[in-house]
């Protein structure tokens, strides 16, 4: 493997959940106009890809499926060290669901010559489904290891620590492998000023569904989002005041006893 490892990494330009505001009267969130940013765990996926390339040699290709603004997620990936950038796009990109995204990523993988290792986030910040990674692996017919917290490569074999609710599993798989990661795996580096500048000049390969041999029917949504609303949880909002900590504490205790929740 003189040329090192071919690594693909998926970056979603998703909705910025911290900045999303609901309409005051209806409580509804307008998804189409919501501010966007790179999905959190995808930054960890890019960082891990770049670290593996630094250790083992090879190339890192970042792929985003989305609209024109998704170029920003690709630029950020390049600033951390991705070598090649690809944007999979079409006019109707906003209608693509998990199934369509997985299909497009699988077709793009084939188009770009295949990857030994494909890294994704274990859940996207906005949708948090945890589906695209395993779905992509099934589309490609390759191994998948989700919820990875530690990753190493030993002679064409991926060794991963998979974090489940109550246990950690050590799992090995031969290339090609799809791996999903969370934010515990690493701390993404901050891009330098020069890296940011260079990244904004990097060429983005644009791929459309027809370039990838996919017909519109194959990408038609099967899951539709009907409405997104911020739930109303009415809270009493009682400010406990007092001159000393003991006064505050006594008043809080009494209020909680009144509620029947403190001994």
């Amino acid at each position: 493997m003189a040329e090192g490892i071919r690594i693909g990494v998926a970056v979603k330009h998703g909705i910025d959940v911290a900045l999303t505001r609901a309409d005051r009267t209806t409580g509804l969130v307008q998804l189409s106009s919501a501010p966007r940013k790179t999905s959190d765990f995808d930054k960890n996926a890019v960082e891990e890809a770049v670290r593996l390339r630094e250790r083992n040699g090879g190339t890192v290709t970042a792929i985003s499926v989305g609209g024109p603004a998704a170029r920003e997620a690709l630029r950020e990936a390049a600033a951390i060290g991705a070598d090649n950038l690809a944007l999979v796009t079409a006019e109707n990109w906003a209608s693509w669901d998990t199934r369509a995204v997985a299909r497009l990523l699988a077709a793009a993988t084939a188009q770009l010559g295949g990857f030994d290792l494909f890294l994704l986030g274990e859940g996207s910040t906005d949708h948090f489904a945890g589906l695209v990674g395993p779905r992509l692996a099934a589309e490609l017919g390759v191994a998948d290891i989700a919820y990875v917290r530690k990753l190493a490569i030993e002679a064409g074999v991926v060794v991963a620590e998979k974090d489940l609710e109550r246990e950690v599993e050590v799992v090995r798989a031969r290339f090609p492998v799809v791996v999903t990661v969370g934010q515990e795996i690493n701390t993404p580096r901050l891009a330098t000023f020069t890296a940011n500048l260079k990244a904004s000049k990097k060429e983005v390969k644009v791929l459309t569904p027809s370039d990838l041999g996919l017909k519109a029917e194959a990408l038609a949504p099967v899951v539709t989002i009907e409405r997104v609303a911020v739930p109303e949880t009415p809270r009493k909002q009682v400010a406990i005041t007092g001159a000393t900590p003991d006064e505050l504490a006594t008043r809080l205790r009494d209020a909680l006893r009144q509620e029947g929740v403190a001994p």
Binding site: R99, R135, V223
Partner: peptide, 17 residues
């Protein structure tokens, strides 16, 4: 969720988590 995604890809099923 992992098995749901894998099965959904295998049988081309709609899926939500």
């Amino acid at each position: 969720r992992e098995v749901a995604g894998r099965l959904a890809g295998l049988l081309d099923l709609p899926a939500l988590t």
